[in-house]
Design a protein around this nucleic acid. Structure first.
Lengths: 217, 217
DNA sequence: TCTTCTAACATACAGTCTGTATGGAACAGG
DNA sequence: CCTGTTCCATACAGACTGTATGTTAGAAGA
């Protein structure tokens, strides 16, 4: 993996170049997959955008689906980093009980999902292209772990009632994903965001242990 | 549409035959799409299973995606009919307050979604193959209307708190869809069903107006 | 430095698939 | 009986994917 031992700079030059072409392929594919979809994007389009030839593509990736897997992994990674970043920022700045923090966390999770690349590649094309097992493995790795441990902690802290974390994780992720798609596809994003947030808020109160009834407007 | 006017029986014979081939195509495509997926199913495979040639396929359908649309429409139709059937049966047999009926309705909705054809074709492949606008149109037509009016009625009756029905419909549908996928993909379907049902139950209590706290176990 | 070997591509090719165009057969209508 | 249309089969053209082959540049050893 990180095994370049001898002739540091020279090898680095070469390795850097190959890494560049690989990145160029992933970047080009990501753009095209996001705007045209997987099936409608030819490998020729991708390599043209990356300014290489198809030979480079099939040297770095097993096949087209393998390239897609790399692209989706990158999208999921970006999303995960964004979420972690948001969460740490919120944990520092905001004050309040655990339950409120959790609710706010879900709301900003919803905002983070409002990303065209993520929606199209991860949520829409991903399951169909990779199949559920490969898709689930990727999402498990990048996204579910964060959400799952967050939920486990919330249960341990008593913010939400004890319940099976595995289905809860999937179902909440699906809930927020669908909400983000609803917002993105709506004509009026503003009101759609507000309405979806309201529904999300209501549904989340069902998880609450102490059931804080109506908290705010 | 229903315009056969003259020479009833003869025309009927011919029309019946053409309708047969069309049905054969849809049935074959449905089976193959469900088990292999859209991209992995060639038109040759479909017409072979239907015992016709590709000419018949492209006579009845504009292209492969058009055939898929018909298949998905049939799946959605079946699901809708099953739901209506279940609901009427439940409305007659079961007794209880509106809130309990609604909750039981969602649970049997969850069971109804446990169908391989429906899951693969409508939930997984549909969005990627048809695109969100065409997919949404189909689901709107067959499924959302039922759920939406059910929810509207529940709000009017006071079973659940007032909230925007459009996002609520989508989000609940996504919730239950994901739950059904989770159950289907689990090794132990029994416990997965129980756990998902429990989580669903909890989330739904957030919608309740009078907030019946802990109702059951 | 010279040789050699291999990674990193480019190019050419074969197979497959989709959609269309053409042809024909059966049936309805005048 | 004749004509037109529906319904479908066959043949063909284009596109696309994956692979096999060729080529070059850099790394490694002597």
């Amino acid at each position: 993996m990180t095994a370049p031992r001898s002739t540091r700079s020279l090898r680095s030059r070469r390795a850097e170049h190959t890494a560049d072409t690989r990145r160029a392929l992933v970047r080009a594919a990501r753009t095209l997959f996001a705007e045209r979809g997987y099936a409608a994007t030819g490998t020729e389009d991708i390599v043209a955008a990356a300014q290489v030839t198809r030979g480079a593509l099939y040297h770095h990736f097993k096949d087209k689906a393998d390239l897609f897997r790399a692209v989706m992994g990158e999208c999921a990674q970006d999303m995960a980093e964004r979420l972690v970043e948001q969460e740490t920022a919120r944990a520092e700045s905001e004050t309040g009980d655990a339950w409120t923090l959790l609710r706010h966390g879900f709301q900003s999770f919803l905002d983070a999902c409002n990303d065209p690349d993520f929606q199209r590649i991860v949520l829409v094309e991903g399951p169909a292209v990779l199949g559920h097992s490969a898709w689930d493995a990727l999402v498990e790795q990048h996204g579910y772990v964060l959400l799952a441990e967050e939920l486990t902690r919330a249960i341990d802290e008593g913010s939400i009632s004890p319940m099976p974390v595995a289905p809860l994780t999937r179902m909440l992720a699906a809930l927020i994903s669908e909400a983000s798609l609803y917002i993105a596809r709506a004509e009026d994003h503003e009101t759609a965001r507000k309405e979806a947030g309201e529904v999300l808020e209501r549904l989340l109160t069902g998880l609450s242990r102490q059931d804080p009834s109506r908290t705010g407007a």
